[in-house]
Structures are given as C-alpha cells and as structure tokens.
Design a protein around this nucleic acid. Structure first.
Lengths: 354, 354
DNA sequence: AATTGTAAGCGCTTACAATT
DNA sequence: AATTGTAAGCGCTTACAATT
C-alpha cells in the first residue's frame, strides 16, 4: 500500500520493450526464445532498479499456480512438536519460493471442510492435511480436488491421498531393543497402552504400531511383559497413576512409557516411592518432547521426526503435483524413521545366570 | 483441480442474467442497487446449486483485497506458547473470513524481509510481526508498506507500527503481591534476572518489566530481595544452577522465577536439597507453560495471554486498515492483562511479630 | 424511476503475428 | 531466421450506459 507497486508494464516502458519481452526474460525463458543478451540485461537491470516484484495474484489467475500451499491441522497449540512439523514444512516450502497458509480445525469436520475450501478459493497448489498425533483421520471432502498429502495420519477409509508418517513399528522395536540389549529380561511394564493391540487411545496409530514393534522384539528375546496399562490421555498425571498402580503389585525393573509426558508422571511416582532411575528402574519412552531432556536423569526416548515429516510432506506434495493425470495407483504411504535419543534412564543389567 | 471450477459467468448464464447482477447480488449489494427480489433469489439458488465459490485471486487482483493476512514470527517451534498466539490470531482471522499466511524467520533479518516481501507479493491485507518472547525487535523494511502490527514486541527504533503485548509490569506486581499477601517478608530471591533492571536477557522486555513491577511492590511492602540471579537462557538447567547457587549461601523462603522452566529447574534443586515446596520454600513464576501444571505441587504462575494476544493483534490490524490515510498519530501500544494461575506452590506465612 | 447490461481494467502469460 | 510486439484472456468489480 502507500506507494503504487511497480508493474510489468512499468518495467517494459522504462526499458523500452514490450511486456512480452519483460515477462519472458524475467521468467528465465529469454534464452529459449532468443531474446538478445543486450535486451535481457537491460530488462533485468531496470526491473531491479524499479524494485519490480511479480504480482502473485495475477500470475495465479493467469496460470493457475500461486506458489502457495495450504497446511490444515487439527491443533497446533496442544503440542509444540507440532510446531516443528509446521516448521519443517515451511522451510521446505520456502526453499522453493512457496508460502504456507495455515489453518487449524480443532478437529471439527465442518471447520476442516471450510478451511480446505477457503484454501482452494485462494488457489493453493496443494494441501497438507496434518494430525498432531499419529492417527487415522476422515479425509475431508474436497481435499482431493487438488494435490494433497496426509501428514502424520492415515485415511480412515480408502482415499487416493498419499500419507507421510513416522515409522512407529520400527520405533517400537528400537525401544524394546534398548531394554533387551541392556540385559533386561524381567520386570518389564508398559505405561500408556496394551496389553492388547486394541488397548490404545482412539484411532491412535502410534500406540498400536509401537506395541506391535515392541511385542515382536520382546517375544523374540523371550521377555515377558508383566503388565500393561492403557491410559486415556497420555499426560503426566496418567503416567503417575499407572505407575502407582504398577508399584502396588509389582517391583518393576523397567518401564516403557508410550510417550515422554507419561514418563514424566512415572518419574514422579517412582520418586515418591523412593525408587531411583535408572538404578532401580529403567525408563524408556517415545517422542523426544523437550521434557525428556529436562528431567534428571535425562530420558532415553525414541524421537518423533517432526521436522522431517513436515519437509517430507512438502516433497511428496510436489511430486504429486508433477505426477498429476498419470494413472492412479494405490495411495502411497511414506514412512520417516524415528531415531533413538540416548539419555541416562536405562541401566545395564549384569548378564543373567545361564 | 480435476473438474473446472464454476465461475461467475457460469452462474450468470445458468440464471439468465448478466455477471454484473450476479456479482452485485453475491456481494450483498443487491438491495442497495435495487435488484428485484426474484432475481436475487434465483441468483443465489443457482450459485448454490452449481457450488459457486468466488475466486479470491481475481477479486484480489481487481479490488486489492485478498482476505488474507500474513503472520511472520521468529520461531514457532521453540515454544508452544507461541502456538497459542498463532491459534488466537487464526481464529480471530477465520471468524472474519480471513486466512493466515505463516512464515518463520528464525530471527534472520534477511529471511524476515524475504517473508514480508513474499507476503506483499501475495497482496496480504496486513502483516502481524510476532516475537516469541516479549522483546524489542528491529522492524523489517517494507513491513509498513501496508497495515502491520507488532505482536509480543516493541520496535527497537521509532516505528509507526502499533504493538500488542502483555502487561508485564502489572504481572510483576501480581507475582510480588502473591508473596507479600501470603505474608512473605524475608528470604525472597529472584531466579532469572536482576538485581538491576539491565540484568536481563538481551532485548527482553518481559524480564525488565516484570522486575519493575516486582520491585515496586516489594519496596512498598518493605520486602528486601536478598539475591537475584540473571540467567542467560531461562531453561530448567539455568534455574537449577541458580537455585543451587542460592542454596550455597542462603536459606531461601521464597523464590520468584522469571518463567516456569526456570521454576522447574528450581524444583529439582530444591528437591535435591531436601527442601519441600511450599512448606520450606514458596515458588512463584511466570508464563503458565504446561510444565506449571505438571509439576507437584502445581506452580502458581502469572499466565501469558497468548491466545488473547494473537486475537488482539488481528483486531488491531483490522482497525489499522480501516483507519488508513488518517493523520498519523503516535504509534499505539496495546497491553493485554496477564492472569494469576493459582497452584499450590505458595505457603501462607504466619503473621510476623510486630 | 426502477432495473439490468456493456465494457473496461486489475497484472500478468502466451499463442500468434509482425518486423527486420 | 532471429528477434520482438499485439492482443486475448484468466475471473472478477464497477462506472456508466441502456432498457423498460
């Protein structure tokens, strides 16, 4: 606002050429269309001098491309891990000159649909539909009117939209392996989910797949999971309660908490019972929430790759845009590896007698 | 993509009227321009049937308004409180049919400028420039090419851009009052900043103003602050170290921590020293970070009104857009009140002997 | 006077024509 | 053949004209 912005026509007039020429040169198609070097140079320098910037709206209106992608999430606020996902997407997008529209639905399907529509009204080049904890989602109608990606989510029903999510099964294996490798064979308890694969928070993919991975490794190593405690909310309080419950009946040697907040609650219950981590009880958890590095001793946790997830979603989105109109194949699921963050919460157990 | 979108012309043709009529009716100017009720009804119903949606790009190109605002922040990821600020802004914007472009600069002035430009290229109707902790910022060039608001920040040099930020001085008073009202007169220590008003993290407004408010109340009540410890980063570790330092020389009765993460570290140091909160030491802090309700006993903390800040910024932005071209007055600073979140971390001290 | 339509123009891109 | 320009059109809004 304020001063009128410089247009293509201004640049053309100042250079003494047509708008076609300026447009071609600035779009980098000068060589291709054999605009003379001299003209190209003059165009570029006047554009620079005048401070010309393309009007994305008019380009969008003309070409259908707006260098913009939409990011619809259920919540950004509840988890700052989510912030990293958005950040990853933003950076990847920004690298290619794209901007991100952000919208938060609060999980309300009506709001989801409204956001998707509002973004299409603005002619986004694609939409990332993100869940803030790994779960199945109902794909909102209209999402697949353009390129789209599901982030940290899998479609509840069939959908042609590809997905990007963490490799939770492998993360489950990694967590179990940490305990097994440290020599733990007995007194292993789960906090947050289990014992059955359906004893998980609603729609949670993370819980289910982590369980699958853990049970594989524990079974293979002959480790029996003594008890498992499904928690509804995975907050510190829930971890605290579950751990107290465990302590009422058992003398645990190792706790696998399904996320770091549960583990934080477990720490509190253990401290109250005068049990020390890791000397009395080893603790492993998931997510690499900041709290994991704040507690003492620091938690060993399997990190959610939020940043990579966001970046990968953008990448998949671009690939999808390019691959448009090709024969539809089965929707693709991309898995991003989760990495072990070593803390000091696991004790190495002396080799058992054989 | 896929099926072509319905245009105004499609609606006009289907209704059997001109595009002018459709445009007027759909813009709600039908009555004003005396379009007959019958025609209005027909236009609306065909628009509905065909699923017509206005192309925001072409409207923007034509009118200069895009129903879009830009949100540029230094970091979204480092603090989830920030998430609430964005959320507040998004909700306020969405209520008026606006969408938010989100960009993160990482504090890099070049990126800031690039983001501001990219948003102006897309003809945003205004820009919110946000800091994730309350501080002074260099206003990026080009920000005031259109309506703009500084959120959670004050301009380092003169700038006509209005600001929205928390009422930190009053928050400082509130924190001190809690201790004073609980009868604390002795053994009060500060963790995170002070004793001087310049002993604060770089550019921090929060620290400085909280100090101002606290010292006012403490002085008025005749309370001496025994020691104050400036911390560079306000992370749990820093609070832990500072508290240990205090414990080496003093037997504190009350700690004011300049944020909840510092307080979390303080809790750890106190626990190690076998001092209990609040029986031995009262603790008050700021922010209402989630950790405040996770620790036991829950922290009494002065909450940052992130959500309201975000919403207020949008409101101020709209007001600014409407008030354009009026005589420029001094830039306005809007203060949003911070509220006390009561935990159980403050002990009531028996009335002192007089 | 009441009601509706014509046409220009926002700032670009691009098919095609025109010039040397 | 090499180089550049003309003009249409993307989908709207709105000044103004035109019709009854």
């Amino acid at each position: 606002m304020g001063r009128r912005r410089v247009t293509l026509a201004d640049v053309a007039k100042a250079t003494g050429v047509s708008t076609t020429t300026v447009s071609l040169v600035l779009a980098g198609r000068g060589a291709e269309l054999r605009i003379s070097d001299d003209v190209q140079r003059r165009v570029r320098s006047t554009a620079q001098e005048l401070g010309y910037r393309r009007n994305t709206l008019s380009v969008g209106l003309r070409t259908g491309h707006t260098q913009t992608i939409g990011f619809v999430s259920d919540t950004v606020a509840s988890s700052l891990l989510a912030g990293n996902m958005i950040k990853g997407a933003m950076e990847a997008a920004h690298q290619r000159g794209f901007m991100l529209f952000c919208g938060e639905s609060g999980g309300d399907p009506d709001v989801e649909r409204a956001l998707v529509e509002a973004m299409h009204d603005r002619r986004v080049d694609g939409i990332i539909f993100a869940a803030m904890y790994t779960r199945t989602v109902a794909v909102p109608e209209g999402l697949d009117d353009g390129p789209a990606v599901l982030l940290n989510a899998l479609p509840a029903a069939y959908s042609p939209v590809p997905s990007v999510l963490p490799d939770e099964v492998e993360a489950g294996r990694a967590a179990a392996r940490i305990l097994v490798d440290a020599g733990h064979r007995e007194g292993v308890h789960l906090v947050g989910a289990g014992p059955g694969l359906d004893d998980v928070p609603p729609n949670s993919i993370a819980a289910r797949e982590r369980l699958i991975g853990m049970l594989q490794v524990f079974e293979a190593a002959g480790v029996e999971v003594v008890s498992a405690h499904q928690c509804p909310k995975w907050m510190p309080e829930d971890g605290y309660d579950a751990t107290r419950e465990i302590l009422r009946h058992h003398r645990p040697r190792a706790l696998v908490c399904l996320n770091d907040r549960l583990a934080f609650g477990a720490y509190q219950a253990l401290a109250e019972a005068a049990l020390s981590v890791p000397d009395d009880v080893s603790v492993v958890s998931y997510d690499d929430h900041p709290i994991a590095s704040w507690v003492r001793p620091r938690l060993t946790t399997i990190a959610l790759p939020h940043h990579e997830l966001g970046a990968k979603a953008v990448e998949v989105l671009f690939a999808a845009s390019e691959r448009r109109r090709r024969t539809k194949s089965a929707p693709v699921v991309h898995r991003v590896p989760m990495s072990v963050q070593l803390g000091e919460s696991v004790r190495t157990v002396p080799a058992p007698s054989r």
